[in-house]
Write a protein that binds this DNA or RNA. Structure first.
Length: 186
DNA sequence: TTATCGATGGTA
DNA sequence: ACCATCGATAAA
């Protein structure tokens, strides 16, 4: 049984955590059901000054969890129907997170469910607002350790869907496993 | 109390 | 290219 990622793993800058998340295993364990997938695509949202980060709108009931301690889930709803799952990173007070955008199914995911996109993977895993703010050091939602990807297997580019964020939209804060078919289509 | 707007995805 | 659909947010 692999180790659960500790608080210390998350308590670092999002840009450092993001590429290291590749290859790690996201697990949802509820009511006797265990669903798991290997992370193949992530984006870093680095703080209040990052105009693409929800925290740039200030500390509100929604963004509060981003300002809190690391190792918590940040789940939000976009377009009224799609959930997106993030892990909160860095020290308490630094409102940063990593968005998981692609998963390679490992366990408990329905055979035809797709996991190549932030909304799709949440549907496949059964992640909803009910999981928002949960401690990733707990036993319901967490990440399991796995060997890091070699640098040559990691590709990097601008984040998706944040064109409104000006120069922040162009920063290469998206990381994915080169060649994986579970990376979101754009 | 009401209006605006998405860190998307499915269909055409 | 269009649009479904709803919570958060800001304006009124």
């Amino acid at each position: 049984m692999p180790d659960k990622l500790s608080r210390a793993f998350y308590a670092r800058p999002a840009l450092l955590v993001a590429p290291e998340l590749l290859g790690k295993v996201l697990v949802l364990d509820e009511g006797g059901t265990r669903r798991a997938g290997r992370i193949v695509e992530v984006e870093a949202y680095v703080g209040e000054h990052d105009l693409a980060c929800h925290a740039s709108k200030g500390r509100t009931p929604r963004t509060d969890v981003l300002f809190g301690p690391p190792a918590r889930a940040y789940v939000f709803l976009v377009y009224g129907m799609h959930h997106c799952f993030n892990v909160v990173t860095d020290e308490e007070g630094v409102a940063s997170a990593c968005l998981v955008r692609g998963l390679e199914p490992i366990e408990g995911i329905p055979p035809h469910a797709r996991t190549d996109g932030p909304g799709k993977l949440c549907r496949a895993m059964g992640i909803t607002l009910a999981h928002n703010r949960l401690e990733l050091t707990g036993d319901t939602v967490f990440l399991e350790d796995a060997p890091p990807l070699t640098r040559r297997r990691i590709a990097r580019g601008p984040r998706i869907g944040v064109d409104y964020a000006g120069r922040w939209a162009r920063k290469p804060y998206r990381f994915w496993e080169r060649g994986s078919r579970f990376v979101s289509k754009v």
